Simulated scan of single mutants.
Amino acid sequence: MINNMYSSTYEVTPLTMAIVAAPENHTKPSAMVLEEEGTWIVENTPSKIMENACKFFGSSLKGRQEGTRSICGITHKAPISIAPSCGMYFFPTASPSSHKCSWIAHSHIEQVNRGPYRQTEIIFKNGKTILLDVSFGSILNQVQRTAQYRYMLDNRIKYAQRDHVDVVAEPYP
């Protein structure tokens, strides 16, 4: 079921599985947002939706990309964590500045398959599927890079929380 949302706003949540770029024949920038329980059409580009999500959690898309670069050295098509405490890790399918760029939630992926005509099928844990005009190798690489980034960031967070669970801030002497 597709629900039309005639707003340029959409709040990315842990239930968001993918934000897919609209076909090139659309006159307005728009995206199809797949959630666990529904599909929405939003009048905004996928990267703008991701930018708004990053801002909601106190950063920017560029800031999240720079954080990825700092942690694991990925500079192009960098995966990001919108909110690591919520497990919200996404990767772009193309350059985020491209109108063809879609964003996929790493934690919702069940399987990645080769599709016809150099396309890739992504099967989500709830059984929904999407077919993207991106090569299988490129998507597989993005999944693996996101897993690497996720592992490294999660380890940093665990290290920072180790032995300091109850400490909110140190008193000023």
Rank of each mutant, 00 (worst) to 15 (best):
residue 123 I to W: 02
residue 111 Q to F: 05
residue 31 A to N: 00
residue 98 S to C: 00
residue 81 S to M: 11
residue 99 H to F: 07
residue 82 I to K: 04
residue 14 P to Q: 12
residue 132 L to M: 04
residue 76 H to I: 06
residue 160 A to P: 02
residue 53 A to E: 09
residue 68 T to D: 03
residue 43 E to W: 07
residue 97 S to P: 00
residue 126 N to A: 01
residue 56 F to Q: 10
residue 28 K to P: 07
residue 33 V to K: 01
residue 80 I to Y: 07
residue 131 L to G: 02
residue 70 S to N: 14
residue 159 Y to D: 15
residue 144 Q to C: 05
residue 33 V to Y: 00
residue 91 F to I: 07
residue 66 E to F: 08
residue 43 E to S: 06
residue 129 T to Q: 12
residue 94 A to E: 09
residue 15 L to Q: 14
residue 105 A to P: 05
residue 106 H to M: 06
residue 162 R to W: 09
residue 13 T to W: 11
residue 157 I to A: 05
residue 170 E to N: 08
residue 62 K to C: 07
residue 108 H to K: 15
residue 46 P to C: 07
residue 157 I to R: 05
residue 94 A to Y: 02
residue 62 K to E: 13
residue 82 I to V: 15
residue 122 I to L: 08
residue 10 Y to R: 10
residue 161 Q to N: 15
residue 168 V to I: 15
residue 144 Q to I: 08
residue 131 L to H: 03
residue 28 K to A: 14
residue 21 A to G: 02
residue 28 K to H: 10
residue 157 I to C: 06
residue 129 T to G: 08
residue 46 P to A: 06
residue 96 P to S: 05
residue 59 S to V: 04
residue 116 P to N: 13
residue 123 I to D: 01
residue 16 T to Y: 11
residue 22 A to V: 04
residue 145 R to H: 07
residue 148 Q to S: 08
residue 4 N to W: 06
residue 170 E to S: 13
residue 153 L to N: 01
residue 90 F to S: 04
residue 140 L to K: 13
residue 2 I to R: 08
residue 92 P to N: 08
